[in-house]
Design a protein around this nucleic acid. Structure first.
Length: 930
RNA sequence: GGGCGGUUAGCUCAGCGGUAGAGCGUCUCGUUUACACCGAGAGGGUCGGGGGUUCGAUCCCCUCACCGCCCACCA
């Protein structure tokens, strides 16, 4: 990161500050981050406290794919988790943030297969064989997998890295086996032959959730299926206003339409709606299925919509989900037309000329052949929704295959109840609707995959196909022995399990289940799950089901759903689309703290994030601001003090900043507890920059430079204490810079031991809030602001020192003016401030708390300009007063609005009126001079 | 077709019953004992349109328009 050269060389404070730990003018994340990443981890700070008394707080990381690398969504997800983890550690809890990865069946297999292809040694998965291939995947995993964890470390993620888990670990694999076997024995896992989403590229079944429907330009082909034996019927072609047919034509065919002509070879019937009079005469008759040369019946079913197309639908039970239901209900034959690669199958019911053709080739051929037979009625262009595999990108084929299914509907019952009862809460709550909607309509979960990388299904088949499900081959064997009465050869199921089945066990499998480990006892149910809404179905719902079934307890108390970080066009980022942004570049450029703070500050509930670099730059500047505030403190010996009682200060500014700190700490705590990360970050930003830096540090300069040793000492201690509170409060968001400053200040002042990760979170009583101090400081702030504003508007030269006169100030105000003389003069560039009986002629004036402030500037400023400025002010006040009067004149308002609202308005109105009168008087004076 | 969300300053977005906010950008000014990745000041909005509830609506309700997402899909 290039820090621009300073444009102006400025005098630096004296040599006494050339301490080796002197804080430089800018924070350099690249020097600092690696040190702390190392130190935190080495110190064991990320491991849960052993203290059995401390409250437990546990988050399980959403396991990234072993193939994954950090994208901006991960950065957000893990930033929020880390904010919570560090926050809870600072509050003294025993925190476990459990890291791990999942084996990502398809994605990983794909990566290794691609590598084999690139190596060009004529090797592929099949030539290597299953065992060798899986070995290669493991080798790949050891070398290249899990790169994302290094990247998470760079982000500052405070996971307990000593507890890293992997879904294919021995322990987790054991959990998977146990789960499968138990569910099988309970009848909740079973084999079934039904239509599944088949990915012809990976040659495996995939789940509904892994299918993405996209609209594409397609066609609607209208075919004629001739009636058997040349039969004919009258088909209405014109209607009167009431919809009664007025004209008919004689047809010897039934018209159907399809977007997928190749599937016609597998039709089992043509269906019409029972109420459709047009076809009543031919229901039960048969039509010739062209090309296939079979006869299929015309049946009735509720499914066809008489209003749509011809009202007649071809039923292809083995290649369409809707047709499948109809075919099942009518017991129609189902013809599987394709092989695993989506080519037309070498099967008796597929006419020879189509066998081996790719399905899209077959489509062209079928259309051509139908046309040649004179049975192509017409072709329409049509937008069709087509299913694509979310990883392969190829068109998904509904295929009739035998697969393993989990009875999700049964497991969903307690999972639904747990959210209904509020045992598990969603934040924001409206996501529970999404959860319910899916869970209440849940379909059987297909858990078998025709892949090699994954947990192999623990099912073995005897010679007669009988299945033995067991946790090991030995157990299966002994069961088979019992069953057959002698030793038989068993063959294990070739398939592996869906990766999400192992992920579903994550909250308890990572804690040691099925062993009864202390971690499991201590940290299950986990505290909060932090994830994006795109995996509520994939993961959250399934963890709920499995957690409740196997642990008899919810897996987490709270599910925090954060935004999706979208790309520039608002599209979802995904690995397969390749439209991901690299957070590591952003870390290189701005530092991890800046990125983290930006993500947290933008993490408002219920809205997706479009990230801009400018925003990150702004928060990087915030870090620099903090850095320099600390530098100032260090230079002024506002370093570390062993003990500080925030109730002790006597100086008003110190009382005030203590109160402001207490308010900020309370706000940050409350917002974090409510998971309003953006609000917490915003409160800190404002407090640090707009309160501590802009005002407090300026206020204390005269005290630090002054003669009053007691006040100086108190101020140093107070500033040091406030800075410490800031570092602590900010640490969850910006761990590196805060930790570095914590250490530096300690080194400079006294020896400071321990790191920020421990029980240090401020708990400041509301009694620290001193209203008198706040009122006084507020007065001063407004006085300074008004002075500055007036000077600036009237183009008083910035360097010009002028007097400030308060006209008719009461004793208390005079005392304040006296007390803060240095400060006000310094901050508003005044020569001196005092009270006076009247404004000198030609003064520039404004009103503050009913007191007229005059800047005698005759000859310096353009008085007509001042008169114009006053007129503008007066007009503004008049407008406001008019509005307020209208409101106060409304009897309903006065009667019904809360008293304090009315009272406040009255006060505001009177103040405005008072100011108006004073400004009018001032204007008259100027006009008199003019 | 069902569901969810959005529409607030030039841009990106907070706020959500009681005086409209931030960052960036714009314009003026600035070598004050931290900070130019800074400071001071200014300008900029009838809070998408229309109804309703309320003493009071950017905020709650209804409705319309336009954007976006998810689920289910007409073969």
């Amino acid at each position: 990161m290039a820090v621009p050269a300073r444009p102006i060389s400025r005098k630096r404070p004296g040599a006494c500050y050339s301490h080796p730990n002197m804080i430089e003018t800018t924070f350099n994340p690249k020097d600092v981050e690696p040190r702390w990443i190392e130190a935190w981890e080495q110190s064991g700070a990320y491991q849960p406290k052993k203290d059995g008394e401390a409250d437990a707080f546990c988050i399980v990381i959403p396991p990234p794919n072993v193939t994954g690398s950090l994208h901006i969504g991960h950065a957000l997800n893990n930033t929020l988790q880390d904010v919570l983890a560090r926050f809870e550690r600072l509050r003294g809890k025993s925190v476990l943030w459990q890291p791990g990865m999942d084996h990502a069946g398809i994605a990983t297999q794909m990566v290794v297969e691609r590598q084999l292809a690139e190596a060009g040694k004529n090797e592929d998965r099949r030539s290597l064989g299953r065992e060798e291939f899986v070995k290669r995947v493991w080798e790949w995993k050891e070398v290249s997998g899990g790169r994302i964890f290094e990247q998470l470390r760079r982000l500052g993620a405070s996971c307990d890295w000593t507890r890293e888990r992997f879904t294919m670990d021995e322990g987790l694999s054991k959990a998977v086996l146990k789960v499968f076997v138990q569910l099988y024995k309970e009848g909740l896992i079973y084999k079934d032959t039904r239509l599944v989403n088949w990915d012809p590229h990976f040659e495996t079944a995939i789940s509904d959730l892994e299918v993405q429907n996209r609209e594409v330009n397609g066609h609607f082909w209208h075919f004629k299926y001739p009636l058997e034996n040349g039969e004919t019927y009258q088909f209405p072609i014109a209607h009167d206003a009431e919809g009664n047919p007025t004209e008919w034509e004689t047809r010897n065919y039934i018209a159907i339409a399809t977007t997928r002509p190749e599937t016609m070879l597998g039709d089992g019937a043509v269906a019409v709606h029972p109420s459709d009079k047009r076809y009543a005469g031919i229901v039960g008759k048969r039509v010739l299925l062209p090309l296939a040369d079979r006869y299929i019946p015309i049946i009735t079913d509720e499914y066809p919509d008489p209003e749509f197309g011809s009202g007649a639908v071809k039923i292809t039970g083995a290649h369409d989900f809707n047709d499948y239901k109809v075919a099942r209900a009518h017991n129609l034959p189902m013809y599987v037309l394709m092989d695993t690669k989506g080519r037309m199958a070498d099967a008796p019911h597929v006419p020879a000329k189509y066998r081996g053709l790719d399905r899209f080739e077959a489509r062209k051929q079928v259309v051509a052949d139908i046309e040649a037979l004179g049975l192509l009625d017409r072709v329409e262009d049509k937008k069709v929704s087509q299913p694509f595999g979310d990883r392969s990108g190829v068109v998904i084929e509904p295929m009739l295959t035998e697969q393993w299914y989990v009875n999700a509907a049964e497991l969903a019952k307690p999972a639904i109840a747990a959210v209904e009862k509020g045992d598990t809460r969603f934040t924001p709550d409206n996501w529970s609707k999404t959860y319910f909607q899916w869970m209440r309509n849940i379909e059987p979960w297909c858990v078998s995959r025709q892949l090699w990388w994954g947990h192999r299904i623990p099912a073995w088949y005897g010679p007669d196909g009988k299945v033995f499900v067991a946790e090991s081959a030995e157990v299966a064997k002994s069961e088979a022995r019992k069953h057959y009465g002698n030793e038989v050869h068993l063959v294990q199921d070739e398939d592996v399990l869906d990766t999400w089945l192992s992920s579903a066990l994550w909250p308890f499998s990572t804690l040691g289940w099925p062993e009864k480990t202390p971690e499991l006892k201590r940290f299950y149910p986990t505290s909060i799950l932090v994830t994006a809404h795109d995996i509520i179905f994939f993961w959250v719902a399934r963890m709920m089901m499995m957690g409740l079934h196997f642990m008899k307890e919810i897996p987490f108390h709270e599910v925090y759903i954060h935004a999706l970080v979208r790309d520039a066009s608002g599209a979802k980022m995904s690995k397969s689309k390749g439209n991901v942004l690299d957070p590591l570049d952003l870390i290189d450029k701005f530092g991890a703290d800046a990125l983290r703070f930006t993500l947290a500050a933008m993490a408002a509930q219920g809205r997706d994030i479009k990230l801009s670099e400018q925003r990150i730059e702004g928060y990087r500047n915030f870090g620099t601001k903090l850095w320099n505030a600390a530098r100032f403190c260090q230079m002024n010996e506002c370093a570390v003090w062993d003990e500080y009682d925030p109730a002790s200060p006597k100086q008003t500014v110190n009382k005030w900043i203590v109160a402001e700190t207490a308010k900020a700490a309370a706000a940050v705590t409350a917002e974090l507890e409510a998971r309003r990360f953006n609000e917490a970050a915003g409160a800190l930003y404002k407090f640090v920059w707009n309160v501590f830096c802009d005002w407090y540090l300026e206020f204390i300069k005269p005290l630090l430079m002054g003669e009053d040793e007691a006040a100086k000492q108190e101020t140093r201690r107070t500033a040091a204490w406030v800075l410490d509170q800031i570092l602590i409060l900010l640490h969850p968001f910006m761990p590196f810079i805060t930790e570095e400053l914590w250490a530096r200040l300690g080194e400079f002042g006294q020896k400071r031991t321990g790191m920020l990760i421990s029980d240090r979170w401020p708990k400041l009583p509301a009694s620290l809030i001193d209203e008198d101090a706040e009122a006084e400081i507020d007065w001063m702030v407004r006085l300074i602001e008004e002075t500055r504003s007036t000077r600036s508007e009237l183009n008083v030269p910035a360097g010009a020192k002028i007097p400030l006169l308060l006209i008719g100030a009461d004793a208390a105000t005079e005392a304040r003016l006296e007390r803060y003389q240095d400060l006000i003069d310094r901050m508003a560039r005044l020569e001196y401030s005092t009270s006076a009986p009247a404004a000198p002629k030609g003064s520039v004036t404004f009103v503050i708390d009913g007191v007229t402030a005059a800047l005698p500037l005759e000859g310096v400023v353009d008085l007509p300009a001042e008169a114009a400025r006053l007129s503008k002010e007066i007009a503004k006040l008049e407008g406001e007063i008019k509005k307020m009067d209208a409101k106060l004149g409304n009897a309903d308002f006065v009667a019904k609005a809360p008293e304090e609202v009315v009272e406040e308005l009255r006060e505001r109105r009177d103040e405005s009126e008072e100011a108006r009168v004073k400004l009018m008087r001032a204007r008259e004076q100027i006009q008199a001079v003019g």
